[in-house]
Structures are given as C-alpha cells and as structure tokens.
C-alpha cells in the first residue's frame, strides 16, 4: 500500500511528481505553440478578409494612438481594418471594423464580447443591425443610434450594446481619418 510518510519520501515524491508534470506541460506547450499561433493568425486573417473588399498581398499590421488610446490596424490596398474596443453592457466589446479606401465602412465583425445571450449578443447575428454598417458613409450620416439623434436602428431592447457598437465603429473611422490626414499612417 501507500509508501511511508517520512520527510524523505514526501520530498522525493513531490519533487518527482512536479518534475514529471512540468515536463508534460512543457512538452505539450512546445507541441501546441505552433498550432495556437496558427489558429490566432487564421482568425485575424479571416476577420480582415470578412470586413474589407478583396485585396492583394498580406495585410500590414501597425498601431496608432488616437485621443489617448492605442489602436491596432491592418493596412491593405483596398482599405484599412481597425480593431476597436468599447465598453458594452456586460464588459468589453471588441470589433474588427473594415474601412474602404473611399472612407466608407465596408463591413464589421465582432471579435469578442460579453453581452447577454439573446439580447445584446444579437450584435453578432442580427442581420438588420449589422447590415446597416455595410457601405455606411460616415460623412453623410451620423454614426449613433436613432435614440441619440443618429441614423442607426438599435437592436431591440439592447440600446447600450448598440451604442457601444456604434461608438466602436465611429472610433475606427476616427483612426482611419487620422491615418489619412498625413497622407501616410505612422508605421
């Protein structure tokens, strides 16, 4: 049965277990590192492709500071995809916003959110709501919900989420405008 609980035995046993476990975890980490990075890259590439018009080459990653917040963006020959994060109803709401070279919003997609299932979480599925942003021209219309005097229909019963979504998109537009002001963005 169980080995005796002498100090020597206990120390030996704990050290052995820790060593073996460390080796197993380390090995698993080394083996999965490549696929994990691959999966993260694939996700980013897929969301950039989803929000921008067709482009050639690989998107260039860079970051820029607008109004005290750092934004990561990806530049391609068809426009610019900006990662924009605001506070929604349940916590952080992070979007990938694609802005075409002419300054209109091409498409948006949610990267991560913690909104209520069935209410705010509809911002990932509600076709009418998401559709409003496709081809949206921020120079012609206002990027706020109708309740605040803007041009966007909010998701039913989820005004806060809709506001956060609109704010994230409008922040992304600011980023785009800043990048284009100086002709070239700071890389």
């Amino acid at each position: 049965m169980a080995a005796e609980s002498t100090l020597k035995n206990m120390v030996l046993c704990l050290s052995a277990v820790c060593l073996i476990c460390a080796a197993v975890v380390g090995g698993a980490y080394a083996m999965t590192k490549e696929p994990i990075d691959e999966a993260a890259r694939a996700k980013t590439t897929a969301s950039i492709a989803a929000v921008l018009p067709e482009f050639a080459g690989t998107p260039e990653q860079a970051s820029v500071n607008v109004d005290g917040t750092d934004y990561t963006y990806y530049k391609t020959d068809s426009g610019c995809a900006v990662i924009s994060s605001t506070s929604g109803f349940g916590g952080a709401l992070t979007l990938m916003v694609g802005i075409a070279s002419d300054g209109t919003v091409h498409n948006t997609t949610v990267l991560s959110h913690t909104e209520t299932p069935g209410l705010g979480a509809k911002c990932t599925t509600d076709e009418h709501f998401i559709g409003q942003f496709q081809g949206f021209d921020p120079k012609q219309k206002s990027l706020t919900v109708k309740k605040d005097g803007g041009d966007l229909d909010a998701i039913t019963a989820s005004t806060i989420t809709s506001r956060a979504y609109a704010l994230a998109v409008s922040n992304a537009v600011k980023v785009f405008n800043k990048l284009n002001e100086g002709g070239q963005g700071n890389e």
């Binding site: 169980a2 080995a3 609980s5 002498t6 206990m10 046993c13 704990l14 277990v17």
Partner: peptide
C-alpha cells in the same frame, strides 16, 4: 501512482 505516494502528501500530488 497511488501505491508510491506517501499518504500525507497525496492531495497536493
């Protein structure tokens, strides 16, 4: 591993 583990440290193990 149970037979090799001293009783007093089994939970941490």
């Amino acid at each position: 591993i149970a037979p090799m583990v001293p009783d007093k440290v089994r939970i941490p193990v």
